[in-house]
Simulated scan of single mutants.
Amino acid sequence: MEETKYLYGASGHCKVIIDVLKSNNVNLKAIFDDKPKEAEIVGIPVINASKINDINNGQFIVSIGDNEIRKRIAEKIKMSFFTAIHSTAVVSENSKIEEGTVVMAGAIINFGAVVGKHCIINTGAIVEHDCKIYDYVHISPKAALAGNVTIGSGTHIGIGASIIQGINVGAGVTIGAGCVVINDVPDYAVVVGNPGNIIKYNSLI
Rank of each mutant, 00 (worst) to 15 (best):
G65D: 02
F81W: 08
K76I: 07
V102T: 08
V90M: 11
M104E: 04
R72Y: 12
I205K: 15
N110K: 12
Q59C: 12
S95G: 04
E128M: 06
I121T: 00
P36N: 11
L204C: 11
I151W: 00
N194Y: 09
S11Q: 12
G116N: 03
I164E: 02
P141I: 03
K142W: 09
G124C: 02
N27F: 14
K51G: 10
G170H: 04
P186F: 00
G147K: 13
N168L: 02
I85K: 07
A113F: 03
A146D: 00
G166D: 00
I121W: 02
F111P: 01
S11T: 15
I73D: 01
Q165R: 14
H129F: 02
K5V: 10
S95F: 00
V103Y: 01
R70M: 03
I126Y: 05
G147M: 10
E75K: 11
G112A: 06
L28M: 09
A89L: 02
A125Q: 02
G147V: 01
S95W: 00
S87I: 10
E2I: 05
I108C: 13
Y6K: 03
G147Y: 10
V115T: 11
G166H: 08
K78E: 13
K96F: 07
I163A: 08
P195L: 09
G116Y: 02
K35G: 04
G12C: 06
D34E: 13
E38H: 10
I182Y: 12
I41D: 13
N110C: 08
T123F: 09
V115C: 12
M79S: 12
H129E: 06
I159L: 10
C119G: 09
Y136E: 05
S87E: 11
S63G: 06
I55A: 15
A49K: 09
I151K: 02
C179L: 00
K96C: 09
G116C: 07
G124Y: 02
I73V: 14
A49Q: 04
G58Q: 10
N197C: 14
A177K: 07
D130C: 05
T150I: 11
T155S: 15
D19A: 11
V103L: 04
N94A: 14
D135P: 04
L204M: 13
S203K: 15
S87F: 06
K35R: 10
E68Q: 14
D66W: 00
H86Q: 01
N197D: 12
I139H: 08
V103I: 13
A74M: 00
N122T: 05
L7G: 05
D187S: 07
I17T: 07
Q165N: 08
E128D: 14
A177R: 07
T101L: 09
N25K: 15
G158K: 01
I182E: 13
A161E: 13
G43K: 12
N148A: 14
I205N: 15
N25W: 10
A146M: 04
K142S: 11
I77A: 07
I31P: 00
A10Q: 07
I198L: 10
I133R: 02
I205R: 15
N148E: 11
V173W: 00
F60D: 01
G193I: 05
G58K: 02
